[in-house]
């Protein structure tokens, strides 16, 4: 034993140290030549519950309609790499809770010039998906009965499917028939995922503009403490009115947020005015020649935003107030 220690052991030790030195040297050289132009971190999607729509190593697990074949492998983007796909629009998704994007191009087998790209944004939950869906809604949108929140334009389909926001964009000026079949296959893949958003039912339906929902994820109306707020448009003879509503954790939070928003308006040039009857506890503020009406009722914070037609604004606000008082948890 002693002989071994004073015999081969020093050489073995020296060899090990030499190997370690070589590794350290190689690492140092590689680090020194680091090229940030190639730096594109890829991180696994940690902590995400898996579903068939969020685990596809090569192809998206979407049943392809007859005649449609993959044109490219699936691409995956994380919050760190999303801008490599959609550049400046990444902020819109990131601020709404984006988790991952998988995209893949498909083409018609017999017509290679007819291709489309499927974007499957995992937004974490239905609300986040709804937020980015409504933020990008096109003016000429035509509702389609694919999911509760779905529309089409001349060349594309946009819809919410559970926690996913989905876009299918055709390369041609018109959507090929197979695009709808692709979307239907994707929805069938995980049926029964269409949850509801209770806030939507709290908006009165009279005069409401169809499909005018918007879910503002954060910094609502410029007030940094207000988030997750739904808006809907109302078309009245005197003009268009925007109503808003946000369900908070408890009545106290709703009341505090309403007070905070009122203070924010007053600090930015708003002037408190008397509200019409029938809106207990409501605040009315004129700012930049428009009327802002804010109130809380139970867990709901609600009101009317930047209304030019004051009488119509009051009418919508009262209707919203009554609806919330009767329905809100």
């Amino acid at each position: 034993m002693k002989k071994m220690q004073h015999g081969r052991e020093p050489y073995i030790s020296a060899s090990v140290l030499l190997v370690l030195l070589l590794i350290a040297g190689g690492t140092a050289v590689k680090q020194a030549r680091f090229d940030p132009s190639l730096f594109a971190p890829t991180s696994p999607e940690e902590g995400l519950p898996q579903s068939p729509l969020s685990s596809a190593p090569r192809d998206l697990p979407v049943p392809l309609p007859d005649g449609l074949v993959p044109m490219s492998p699936v691409e995956t983007f994380t919050p760190e790499t999303l801008s490599e796909k959609i550049n400046g629009k990444a902020e819109l998704y990131l601020s709404a809770g984006f988790r991952s994007l998988r995209s893949q191009r498909f083409m018609e087998k017999e017509r290679s010039e007819s291709w489309m790209e499927l974007y499957l944004y995992d937004m974490g939950d239905l609300r986040n998906a709804f937020a980015v869906f409504t933020a990008q809604r096109r003016e000429d949108a035509r509702e389609v009965p694919l999911t509760p929140f779905a529309y089409e334009t001349a060349n594309a389909l946009f819809f919410v499917h559970g926690r996913h926001y989905v876009e299918i964009v055709s390369a041609a000026e018109e959507s090929p028939a197979v695009m709808a079949a692709l979307a239907e296959g994707l929805v069938r893949q995980e049926p029964g995922r269409e949850e509801t958003l209770p806030e939507l039912a709290l908006f009165p339906s009279e005069h409401r503009v169809e499909g005018s929902w918007v879910l503002l994820a954060e910094n609502v109306f410029g007030f940094e403490f207000m988030n997750r707020t739904f808006t809907a448009e109302y078309e009245l003879p005197e003009g268009r009115i925007t109503a808003f509503l946000s369900l908070r954790r408890d009545p106290e939070e709703a009341r505090q947020l309403a007070d905070g928003y009122v203070r924010f308006l007053l600090e930015n040039g708003g002037k408190a005015v008397e509200c019409a009857d029938g809106l207990p506890g409501a605040h009315c503020i004129t700012i930049l020649d428009t009327l802002e009406m804010v109130f809380s009722s139970g867990r709901a914070l609600a009101g009317v935003h930047q209304a030019e037609a004051f009488a119509s604004a009051t009418r919508v606000a009262r209707s919203l107030y009554e609806r919330i008082a009767g329905e809100a948890p």
């Binding site: 629009k89 096109r138 003016e139 949108a141 334009t153 001349a154 060349n155 964009v169």
Partner: peptide, 12 residues
């Protein structure tokens, strides 16, 4: 006009 820089719909 809208949804840039990627767009995606002709209506953009």
């Amino acid at each position: 006009m809208t949804n840039g820089p990627t767009g995606g719909s002709l209506s953009d």
